[in-house]
């Protein structure tokens, strides 16, 4: 699933972290345990720079499938890093809005959310 040089990260791919949308990645981060977040982080940190250098050789808009999976893993890393480095992997200490209330409409074909006109 991942490029051969990054087979050591296959457990993360198997655990379902190669996700193509922000909506999916933030949801998986918030539904992961502290242990799962730490495992992800600890596996990725030493490989981050090599992964970027590998992917930088390709056209960002035209990755072969294994490279696209690795890119998605990096994007998941950006989510997990926030939880691990800022909140010590303990999401219960984060007091922001639930992710599904702060909607990335850049991923919505309609370009926005609808609500009926009402004064309630």
């Amino acid at each position: 699933m991942l490029p051969q040089a990054f087979e050591d990260l296959q457990p993360l791919a198997t655990a379902g972290w190669c996700l193509g949308t922000e909506t999916e990645r933030v949801e998986k981060r918030h539904s992961s345990s502290a242990a799962e977040l730490r495992t992800f982080y600890d596996l990725m940190v030493p490989r981050l720079e090599s992964a970027i250098e590998h992917l930088n050789e390709f056209d960002l808009k035209d990755f072969p499938e294994p490279e696209q999976h690795l890119m998605n893993l990096l994007l998941s890393m950006a989510e997990v890093t926030f939880a691990v480095e800022k909140f010590d992997a303990d999401e219960s200490r984060y007091e922001g809005l639930p992710a599904d209330r702060f909607v990335p409409v850049h991923e919505h074909a309609a370009g926005g959310l609808y609500t009926p006109f009402e004064y309630k």
Partner: peptide
């Protein structure tokens, strides 16, 4: 490139 895409994601999150 991928590095800038990762950086953008990190900063935006």
């Amino acid at each position: 490139n991928a590095g800038e895409r990762f950086s953008e994601e990190y900063g935006r999150i």
